[in-house]
Protein backbone atom coordinates (compact mmCIF):
# COMPACT_ATOMS: atom_id res chain seq x y z
CA UNK A 1 0.00 0.00 0.00
CA UNK A 2 1.36 3.37 -0.95
CA UNK A 3 0.21 6.96 -1.02
CA UNK A 4 1.31 9.27 -3.77
CA UNK A 5 2.85 12.64 -3.02
CA UNK A 6 0.37 15.24 -4.21
CA UNK A 7 2.02 18.34 -5.57
CA UNK A 8 0.24 21.50 -6.60
CA UNK A 9 1.28 20.72 -10.15
CA UNK A 10 -0.46 17.34 -10.01
CA UNK A 11 -3.60 18.93 -8.61
CA UNK A 12 -3.45 21.55 -11.35
CA UNK A 13 -2.97 19.12 -14.25
CA UNK A 14 -5.74 16.83 -13.05
CA UNK A 15 -8.20 19.65 -12.49
CA UNK A 16 -7.33 22.36 -14.96
CA UNK A 17 -10.43 21.72 -17.07
CA UNK A 18 -12.97 20.38 -14.55
CA UNK A 19 -12.27 23.17 -12.05
CA UNK A 20 -11.47 25.76 -14.73
CA UNK A 21 -8.17 26.67 -13.07
CA UNK A 22 -5.94 29.40 -14.43
CA UNK A 23 -2.47 29.94 -13.06
CA UNK A 24 -1.94 33.66 -12.48
CA UNK A 25 1.18 33.79 -10.32
CA UNK A 26 3.80 31.75 -8.48
CA UNK A 27 4.50 29.18 -11.22
CA UNK A 28 7.86 28.47 -9.61
CA UNK A 29 6.07 26.97 -6.60
CA UNK A 30 4.20 24.27 -8.51
CA UNK A 31 6.30 21.57 -6.88
CA UNK A 32 4.88 22.48 -3.47
CA UNK A 33 3.25 19.57 -1.70
CA UNK A 34 -0.37 19.51 -0.61
CA UNK A 35 -0.36 17.61 2.67
CA UNK A 36 -4.02 17.34 3.53
CA UNK A 37 -6.78 16.09 1.21
CA UNK A 38 -9.12 19.01 1.65
CA UNK A 39 -9.43 22.76 1.18
CA UNK A 40 -9.62 25.63 3.67
CA UNK A 41 -11.27 29.02 3.60
CA UNK A 42 -8.82 31.28 5.41
CA UNK A 43 -11.45 33.70 6.74
CA UNK A 44 -10.23 33.67 10.32
CA UNK A 45 -6.59 33.91 9.30
CA UNK A 46 -7.43 36.98 7.21
CA UNK A 47 -9.20 38.45 10.22
CA UNK A 48 -5.99 38.04 12.18
CA UNK A 49 -6.62 34.82 14.10
CA UNK A 50 -3.92 32.44 12.91
CA UNK A 51 -3.88 29.87 15.70
CA UNK A 52 -5.17 26.57 14.27
CA UNK A 53 -4.80 27.98 10.77
CA UNK A 54 -4.98 24.92 8.45
CA UNK A 55 -2.12 26.20 6.35
CA UNK A 56 -1.23 22.82 4.77
CA UNK A 57 -4.39 22.82 2.70
CA UNK A 58 -5.36 24.46 -0.56
CA UNK A 59 -6.62 27.91 0.45
CA UNK A 60 -9.83 29.07 -1.22
CA UNK A 61 -10.69 32.75 -1.36
CA UNK A 62 -14.39 33.11 -2.10
CA UNK A 63 -16.83 35.97 -2.20
CA UNK A 64 -16.79 36.62 1.53
CA UNK A 65 -12.99 36.63 1.89
CA UNK A 66 -12.56 38.75 -1.20
CA UNK A 67 -14.98 41.42 -0.03
CA UNK A 68 -13.63 41.31 3.48
CA UNK A 69 -10.12 42.03 2.19
CA UNK A 70 -11.44 44.95 0.15
CA UNK A 71 -13.14 46.36 3.23
CA UNK A 72 -9.86 46.54 5.17
CA UNK A 73 -7.78 49.76 5.32
CA UNK A 74 -4.70 49.46 3.09
CA UNK A 75 -2.22 49.24 5.95
CA UNK A 76 -4.10 46.54 7.77
CA UNK A 77 -4.61 44.57 4.59
CA UNK A 78 -0.88 44.66 3.91
CA UNK A 79 -0.20 43.39 7.43
CA UNK A 80 -2.67 40.51 6.99
CA UNK A 81 -1.05 39.56 3.68
CA UNK A 82 2.27 39.56 5.46
CA UNK A 83 1.06 37.08 8.11
CA UNK A 84 -0.64 34.93 5.49
CA UNK A 85 2.46 34.58 3.35
CA UNK A 86 4.48 33.81 6.45
CA UNK A 87 2.86 30.36 6.42
CA UNK A 88 3.93 27.48 4.20
CA UNK A 89 0.81 27.37 2.10
CA UNK A 90 0.64 25.01 -0.91
CA UNK A 91 -1.47 27.33 -3.11
CA UNK A 92 -4.36 29.79 -3.25
CA UNK A 93 -7.45 29.61 -5.42
CA UNK A 94 -9.68 32.63 -6.05
CA UNK A 95 -13.11 31.30 -6.95
CA UNK A 96 -16.01 33.09 -8.66
CA UNK A 97 -13.66 34.82 -11.06
CA UNK A 98 -12.30 37.04 -8.27
CA UNK A 99 -8.83 38.41 -8.96
CA UNK A 100 -6.14 38.94 -6.38
CA UNK A 101 -4.84 42.53 -6.17
CA UNK A 102 -1.36 43.51 -7.32
CA UNK A 103 0.31 43.37 -3.93
CA UNK A 104 -1.08 39.87 -3.33
CA UNK A 105 0.32 38.68 -6.68
CA UNK A 106 3.68 40.27 -5.91
CA UNK A 107 3.89 38.58 -2.51
CA UNK A 108 2.94 35.25 -4.08
CA UNK A 109 5.72 35.54 -6.66
CA UNK A 110 8.22 36.34 -3.93
CA UNK A 111 7.07 33.46 -1.71
CA UNK A 112 6.81 31.02 -4.65
CA UNK A 113 3.21 30.20 -3.84
CA UNK A 114 1.04 29.46 -6.90
CA UNK A 115 -2.17 31.45 -7.28
CA UNK A 116 -5.07 30.19 -9.38
CA UNK A 117 -8.37 31.68 -10.38
CA UNK A 118 -11.50 29.67 -11.11
CA UNK A 119 -14.83 30.64 -12.60
CA UNK A 120 -16.72 28.18 -10.41
CA UNK A 121 -18.79 29.41 -7.48
CA UNK A 122 -17.05 28.71 -4.20
CA UNK A 123 -19.33 25.94 -2.95
CA UNK A 124 -19.09 24.02 -6.21
CA UNK A 125 -15.34 24.49 -6.30
CA UNK A 126 -14.89 23.24 -2.74
CA UNK A 127 -17.00 20.12 -3.36
CA UNK A 128 -15.21 19.16 -6.57
CA UNK A 129 -11.74 19.97 -5.30
CA UNK A 130 -12.27 17.95 -2.10
CA UNK A 131 -13.46 14.92 -4.06
CA UNK A 132 -10.52 15.19 -6.42
CA UNK A 133 -8.02 15.57 -3.57
CA UNK A 134 -9.61 12.65 -1.74
CA UNK A 135 -8.98 10.48 -4.80
CA UNK A 136 -5.40 11.69 -5.12
CA UNK A 137 -4.70 10.93 -1.47
CA UNK A 138 -6.44 7.53 -1.52
CA UNK A 139 -4.20 4.57 -0.61
CA UNK A 140 -3.34 2.57 -3.70
CA UNK A 141 -1.58 -0.59 -4.73
CA UNK A 142 -1.56 -3.32 -7.33
CA UNK A 143 -3.09 -6.78 -7.35
CA UNK A 144 -1.75 -9.54 -9.53
CA UNK A 145 -4.72 -10.72 -11.52
CA UNK A 146 -7.04 -9.72 -14.34
CA UNK A 147 -10.24 -7.85 -13.63
CA UNK A 148 -13.58 -8.27 -15.36
CA UNK A 149 -16.94 -6.61 -14.76
CA UNK A 150 -19.55 -9.38 -14.79
CA UNK A 151 -23.01 -7.87 -14.80
CA UNK A 152 -22.01 -5.23 -12.29
CA UNK A 153 -19.89 -7.53 -10.15
CA UNK A 154 -16.23 -6.55 -10.25
CA UNK A 155 -14.18 -9.75 -10.24
CA UNK A 156 -10.41 -10.04 -9.96
CA UNK A 157 -9.20 -13.39 -11.30
CA UNK A 158 -5.99 -14.59 -9.70
CA UNK A 159 -3.90 -17.68 -10.21
CA UNK A 160 -0.49 -18.91 -11.19
CA UNK A 161 0.66 -18.03 -14.66
CA UNK A 162 -0.51 -20.54 -17.23
CA UNK A 163 -3.51 -21.70 -15.21
CA UNK A 164 -5.97 -20.17 -17.65
CA UNK A 165 -6.66 -16.63 -16.49
CA UNK A 166 -6.43 -15.01 -19.89
CA UNK A 167 -8.55 -17.69 -21.57
CA UNK A 168 -11.22 -17.25 -18.91
CA UNK A 169 -11.14 -13.49 -19.33
CA UNK A 170 -11.41 -13.84 -23.08
CA UNK A 171 -14.36 -16.20 -22.79
CA UNK A 172 -16.05 -13.79 -20.37
CA UNK A 173 -15.55 -10.91 -22.80
CA UNK A 174 -17.08 -13.01 -25.57
CA UNK A 175 -20.09 -13.55 -23.34
CA UNK A 176 -20.59 -9.80 -23.27
CA UNK A 177 -18.83 -8.80 -20.05
CA UNK A 178 -16.20 -6.08 -19.87
CA UNK A 179 -12.48 -6.15 -19.30
CA UNK A 180 -11.18 -3.77 -16.64
CA UNK A 181 -7.54 -4.84 -16.49
CA UNK A 182 -5.39 -7.65 -17.83
CA UNK A 183 -2.81 -9.40 -15.67
CA UNK A 184 -2.25 -6.53 -13.22
CA UNK A 185 -5.05 -4.54 -11.61
CA UNK A 186 -4.38 -1.19 -9.99
CA UNK A 187 -6.46 -0.75 -6.86
CA UNK A 188 -7.44 2.41 -4.99
CA UNK A 189 -9.22 2.64 -1.66
CA UNK A 190 -12.02 5.20 -1.88
CA UNK A 191 -13.69 6.64 1.23
CA UNK A 192 -11.84 4.04 3.28
CA UNK A 193 -14.23 1.26 2.25
CA UNK A 194 -14.57 0.72 -1.50
CA UNK A 195 -11.72 -0.86 -3.43
CA UNK A 196 -11.75 0.43 -7.00
CA UNK A 197 -9.88 -1.51 -9.67
CA UNK A 198 -8.53 -0.06 -12.89
CA UNK A 199 -5.85 -0.80 -15.44
CA UNK A 200 -2.61 1.04 -15.94
CA UNK A 201 -3.07 3.85 -18.47
CA UNK A 202 -0.47 2.36 -20.75
CA UNK A 203 -1.96 -1.09 -21.19
CA UNK A 204 -5.63 -0.12 -21.00
CA UNK A 205 -7.92 -2.03 -23.44
CA UNK A 206 -5.14 -4.49 -24.26
CA UNK A 207 -4.49 -8.02 -23.17
CA UNK A 208 -2.02 -10.75 -23.91
CA UNK A 209 -3.29 -14.09 -25.13
CA UNK A 210 -0.72 -16.85 -25.23
CA UNK A 211 -0.11 -17.99 -28.77
CA UNK A 212 -1.78 -14.97 -30.33
CA UNK A 213 0.01 -12.06 -28.75
CA UNK A 214 -1.25 -8.62 -27.76
CA UNK A 215 -4.92 -8.12 -28.49
CA UNK A 216 -6.76 -4.80 -28.49
CA UNK A 217 -9.99 -5.81 -26.82
CA UNK A 218 -11.86 -2.61 -27.63
CA UNK A 219 -10.98 -2.83 -31.32
CA UNK A 220 -11.82 -6.50 -31.53
CA UNK A 221 -14.96 -6.78 -29.42
CA UNK A 222 -16.28 -3.24 -29.41
CA UNK A 223 -16.58 -0.52 -26.83
CA UNK A 224 -18.91 -2.45 -24.54
CA UNK A 225 -16.16 -4.99 -23.91
CA UNK A 226 -14.08 -2.57 -21.88
CA UNK A 227 -14.61 -0.68 -18.68
CA UNK A 228 -12.37 2.00 -17.24
CA UNK A 229 -12.80 1.28 -13.55
CA UNK A 230 -15.00 -0.82 -11.31
CA UNK A 231 -15.45 -1.53 -7.62
CA UNK A 232 -13.89 -4.87 -6.66
CA UNK A 233 -16.61 -7.15 -5.27
CA UNK A 234 -15.08 -10.60 -5.58
CA UNK A 235 -11.68 -12.25 -5.83
CA UNK A 236 -11.56 -15.60 -7.59
CA UNK A 237 -8.39 -17.65 -7.20
CA UNK A 238 -7.87 -20.41 -9.73
CA UNK A 239 -5.88 -23.29 -8.26
CA UNK A 240 -4.93 -26.71 -9.56
CA UNK A 241 -7.31 -29.39 -8.34
CA UNK A 242 -4.78 -31.29 -6.25
CA UNK A 243 -3.60 -28.09 -4.56
CA UNK A 244 -6.99 -27.45 -3.02
CA UNK A 245 -7.20 -29.90 -0.14
CA UNK A 246 -10.16 -28.27 1.55
CA UNK A 247 -12.52 -27.17 -1.16
CA UNK A 248 -15.64 -25.37 0.08
CA UNK A 249 -18.61 -27.59 -0.69
CA UNK A 250 -21.36 -25.43 0.75
CA UNK A 251 -20.47 -21.79 0.27
CA UNK A 252 -22.44 -21.03 3.40
CA UNK A 253 -19.81 -18.88 5.07
CA UNK A 254 -18.00 -16.20 3.12
CA UNK A 255 -14.25 -16.08 3.01
CA UNK A 256 -12.32 -12.87 2.62
CA UNK A 257 -8.95 -11.53 1.62
CA UNK A 258 -7.66 -8.13 2.61
CA UNK A 259 -7.00 -5.61 -0.13
CA UNK A 260 -5.68 -2.25 1.06
CA UNK A 261 -6.89 -3.28 4.50
CA UNK A 262 -10.47 -3.93 3.40
CA UNK A 263 -12.16 -7.36 3.37
CA UNK A 264 -13.15 -8.54 -0.10
CA UNK A 265 -15.08 -11.78 -0.66
CA UNK A 266 -12.80 -14.53 -1.88
CA UNK A 267 -13.44 -17.93 -3.41
CA UNK A 268 -11.12 -20.61 -4.73
CA UNK A 269 -12.09 -22.54 -7.83
CA UNK A 270 -10.25 -25.84 -8.35
CA UNK A 271 -9.06 -26.17 -11.92
CA UNK A 272 -9.08 -29.42 -13.85
CA UNK A 273 -8.77 -29.96 -17.59
CA UNK A 274 -12.17 -29.74 -19.22
CA UNK A 275 -13.77 -27.49 -16.60
CA UNK A 276 -15.39 -24.47 -18.19
CA UNK A 277 -13.64 -21.87 -16.05
CA UNK A 278 -15.34 -18.86 -17.58
CA UNK A 279 -18.73 -20.36 -16.86
CA UNK A 280 -17.73 -21.12 -13.27
CA UNK A 281 -16.42 -17.59 -12.72
CA UNK A 282 -19.62 -16.20 -14.21
CA UNK A 283 -21.75 -18.26 -11.82
CA UNK A 284 -19.50 -17.27 -8.92
CA UNK A 285 -20.17 -13.61 -9.77
CA UNK A 286 -23.93 -14.19 -9.91
CA UNK A 287 -23.74 -16.01 -6.58
CA UNK A 288 -21.82 -13.08 -5.07
CA UNK A 289 -24.49 -10.72 -6.38
CA UNK A 290 -27.28 -12.82 -4.85
CA UNK A 291 -25.46 -13.03 -1.53
CA UNK A 292 -24.86 -9.28 -1.55
CA UNK A 293 -28.61 -8.81 -1.87
CA UNK A 294 -29.00 -10.78 1.35
CA UNK A 295 -29.87 -14.19 -0.06
CA UNK A 296 -27.66 -17.13 0.86
CA UNK A 297 -28.94 -20.23 -0.94
CA UNK A 298 -26.95 -22.67 1.19
CA UNK A 299 -28.20 -21.38 4.52
CA UNK A 300 -31.75 -21.10 3.28
CA UNK A 301 -31.74 -24.70 2.09
CA UNK A 302 -30.18 -25.69 5.38
CA UNK A 303 -32.87 -23.92 7.40
CA UNK A 304 -35.48 -25.81 5.43
CA UNK A 305 -33.71 -29.11 5.98
CA UNK A 306 -33.24 -28.60 9.71
CA UNK A 307 -36.86 -27.56 10.12
CA UNK A 308 -37.92 -30.76 8.40
CA UNK A 309 -35.62 -32.98 10.45
CA UNK A 310 -36.25 -31.53 13.86
CA UNK A 311 -39.80 -30.33 13.46
CA UNK A 312 -39.28 -26.65 14.06
CA UNK A 313 -35.91 -26.18 15.78
CA UNK A 314 -33.52 -23.91 13.96
CA UNK A 315 -29.81 -23.18 14.19
Amino acid sequence: MQRDVVTVEKFYTANETPLDLKLVAGASGLKRIIREPTVNRPGLALAGFTRYFASKRVQVIGNAESHFLKSLPNEQRAARYETLFGHRIPCFVFSRQHRPDKSFLKLAEEANIPIFTSSLITMKFINLATLSLEMMFAPRGTELGSMVDILGVGVIIRGESGIGKSESVLALIERGYSLVADDVTKVTLVDGRDVIGTSSDLTRDHMEVRGIGIVNVAAMFGVRSIRHEKKVDLIVTLKLWDQVPDVDRLGMEDQYVKILGVDVTHITIPVRPGRDLARLIEVAAFQAKLKASGYNPASELNQRLIAKMTGGKTL
Binding site: D246, M309, T310, K313, L315
Partner: peptide, 15 residues
Protein backbone atom coordinates in the same frame (compact mmCIF):
# COMPACT_ATOMS: atom_id res chain seq x y z
CA UNK B 1 -26.31 -34.89 16.86
CA UNK B 2 -29.27 -32.68 17.84
CA UNK B 3 -29.96 -31.14 14.46
CA UNK B 4 -29.47 -34.19 12.27
CA UNK B 5 -27.48 -34.32 9.06
CA UNK B 6 -27.85 -30.74 7.90
CA UNK B 7 -25.51 -28.84 5.60
CA UNK B 8 -22.39 -28.78 7.75
CA UNK B 9 -22.46 -32.46 8.78
CA UNK B 10 -23.23 -33.36 5.17
CA UNK B 11 -20.12 -31.50 4.08
CA UNK B 12 -18.03 -33.25 6.73
CA UNK B 13 -19.42 -36.65 5.75
CA UNK B 14 -18.75 -36.02 2.08
CA UNK B 15 -15.24 -34.72 2.73
Amino acid sequence: NKLGIHARPSAMFVK
